[in-house]
Design a protein around this nucleic acid. Structure first.
Length: 253
DNA sequence: TAGTCGTGGGT
DNA sequence: TACCCAAGACT
């Protein structure tokens, strides 16, 4: 849920989610339609399906217990380098280099003296953070949480609060006079008018409907017919929607 | 590896 | 107002 999504928006949904589905097997038994409705407007709904699929794997292949092994975790749908190590560190209290957008920024500044992180260098990023971690599991896990929290609360992207920073004395960026970031800027994403917006509109209609909807109902969600059809097709391909025998559309069973 | 995939709050 | 950005993963 937290992938590319602010903590404050995730928290209430996560709380309800865990009360409703306290175990992987309980969650795996839910229908995809129920999962997508519970996911609501968190965004990137394919994450919900991947989480659902991961729960099924955990239930059937791992005895309903979340694995404590990087490779087993990364083999789960939707679990990549960051999530696998975050589960290890925060779920299992293990020593694991947790590299998210916050940690990348903290390391870029405090260690490398740069204004910001720039493009990901996966291997080097992992090595940078690994070098910061103490040997013992419990302390390393706490430091991992601290690095993330520092980036999220103090060493922020826009206006870092260096006056409140506990490691300002050791910060290479501070020592260098806080030079502005000069590396390549990631291309602005844009949203209005994109397929992502259209897919969101279409899925919004399906989530709100208690019964399957006909094509005309979906037509009302977006005026450009070609783009609408393309996006509807992509939702079907992604398993986020299904077409029934009578031609109507609904969330997947 | 560069593009794609939602959504909403902050500036 | 238009961006920027947010506990990334996958292709």
């Amino acid at each position: 849920m937290l992938q590319q999504t602010p903590v404050a928006r995730v928290e209430p949904i996560w709380t309800d989610w865990m009360a409703r589905w306290p175990t992987p097997s309980a969650f795996a038994a839910a229908s995809r339609a129920d999962v997508l409705r519970a996911w609501g407007k968190l965004g990137y709904p394919r994450r919900a399906l991947r989480l659902h699929a991961a729960a099924a794997v955990i239930a059937t292949e791992h005895g309903d217990a979340v694995p404590a092994d990087v490779d087993e975790l990364e083999a789960l749908p939707g679990v990549g380098s960051y999530t696998a190590r975050a589960v290890l560190a925060f779920g299992h209290g293990r020593r694991a280099p947790v590299v998210d957008t916050n940690v990348r920024r903290v390391v870029a500044r405090a260690v490398h003296g740069a204004g910001d992180a720039g493009p990901a260098r996966t291997r080097a990023d992992l090595a940078d953070v690994d070098a910061l971690l103490p040997a013992d599991d419990a302390t390393a896990a706490v430091l991992s949480a601290g690095l993330m929290e520092l980036g999220a609360v103090v060493c922020t992207a826009r206006a870092p609060r260096c006056g409140d920073c506990p490691v300002i004395a050791a910060c290479a960026w501070q020592a260098a006079g806080r030079p502005a970031y000069d590396g390549p800027r990631k291309a602005a994403q844009g949203f209005a008018g994109t397929d992502r917006q259209v897919r969101g509109r279409l899925l919004d209609v399906l989530r709100a409907a208690t019964d399957p909807v006909d094509r005309a109902t979906l037509d009302a969600a977006w005026s450009d017919a070609a783009q609408r059809d393309r996006c509807l097709h992509s939702l079907l391909v992604d398993g986020l929607a299904e077409q029934h025998d009578d031609g109507r559309f609904a969330l997947p069973v």
